[in-house]
């Protein structure tokens, strides 16, 4: 609050009402509802529900399928985060170096930000088309018989590749703006101290980029967990079958298709706890960042 604010009583309340009403109806109500129905077993035909305590959670913990999906989600998240951060950092450092064409490179490297995940998935389907997809042919030329949607590992590879393609631009934009905010004096001092570009990168640039990197780490984990839904749904053409899927996709499949509301709600709650933990972690990092910079 500003010290010199206004003291009208009714206006701020009136201004806050739309926001509060929308989040009450479409945020708090559904969130509470999810927690509540995770303790119930819903009749698939909607005739009623029985209180079952923590049975839904116990079922999850004992479900081999769920644990398998959790493990895949973990591997998927690590791979997507690692490759999209690494590639973006490399490109940002190079884009920060060059003088000629810097603007064109920036545009060429960031436009994919605006592509919707399912459309990215669709492009993946085209690139990996079984009979003529350019990437399928590339794989075939090195003796890899790539079968999207049939072979588990091939489908997973495509998911990771498309997800990385879609996420590099965001990381690139943040890394580049982080690099450009390093003061000129620091760069020049580093140039005098250390003649090798690689040495300068690891000793000066990388530590200065660390706050941006930590922030992006959380952003990327959240992306891999949630925003890749559209990519996965289009790459498996809406038919999960034996294809790899992530935890969020499982919530959707069980709840919306399988009508297992209790189980799906329990999964939602597990994800909520996961996101909350990540956010608390992130807030603590940001707090630290404010302290030291």
């Amino acid at each position: 609050m500003k010290r010199a604010g206004f003291s009208t009583r009714w206006l701020p309340i009136l201004l806050l009402v739309p926001q509060l009403a929308i989040i009450a109806i479409f945020f708090y109500w559904p969130a509470v509802h999810a927690v509540q129905s995770s303790f119930y077993l819903q009749d698939p035909f909607g005739f009623g529900s029985t209180y079952v305590g923590v049975d839904n959670y116990a079922d999850l913990a004992n479900s081999g399928e769920y644990l398998k999906i959790a493990r895949f989600t973990l591997i998927f998240t690590v791979l997507v985060t690692f490759f999209s951060l690494g590639l973006a950092l490399l490109l940002a450092v190079k884009a920060d170096n060059v003088i000629r064409g810097a603007r064109s490179y920036r545009t060429l490297l960031m436009w994919v930000y605006a592509v919707a995940p399912p459309v990215a998935g669709f492009i993946g389907l085209i690139m990996f088309n079984q009979s003529w997809g350019p990437l399928t042919e590339l794989a075939r030329s090195v003796g890899w018989d790539f079968k999207l949607g049939v072979n588990f590992n091939d489908t997973a590879t495509a998911m990771v590749l498309v997800s990385v393609w879609k996420q590099v631009p965001v990381n690139f934009i943040f890394f580049l703006s982080g690099l450009q905010s390093i003061p000129k004096a620091v760069r020049e001092a580093a140039l005098i101290d250390n003649r090798s570009a690689t040495g300068r990168f690891w000793d000066v640039t990388f530590p200065l980029l660390a706050p941006t990197g930590f922030f992006l780490l959380i952003i990327n984990i959240t992306y891999a967990l949630f925003d890749t839904f559209g990519i996965i749904d289009t790459l498996v053409k809406g038919e999960p079958g034996n294809n790899p899927m992530t935890l969020v996709y499982k919530v959707y499949v069980d709840g919306f298709r399988g009508n297992d509301l209790g189980g799906s709600s329990a999964q939602s709650v597990v994800l909520m706890v996961l996101v909350l933990a990540l956010t608390v972690f992130q807030f603590r990092l940001i707090e630290r960042r404010i302290h030291y910079t």
């Binding site: 989040i23 945020f27 559904p30 949630f226 709600s265 939602s268 956010t279």
Partner: peptide, 12 residues
């Protein structure tokens, strides 16, 4: 509300 994306409370 910043903490929980729509995806985790999609069904309710």
């Amino acid at each position: 509300t910043l903490l929980l994306p729509l995806e985790v409370r999609i069904l309710p």
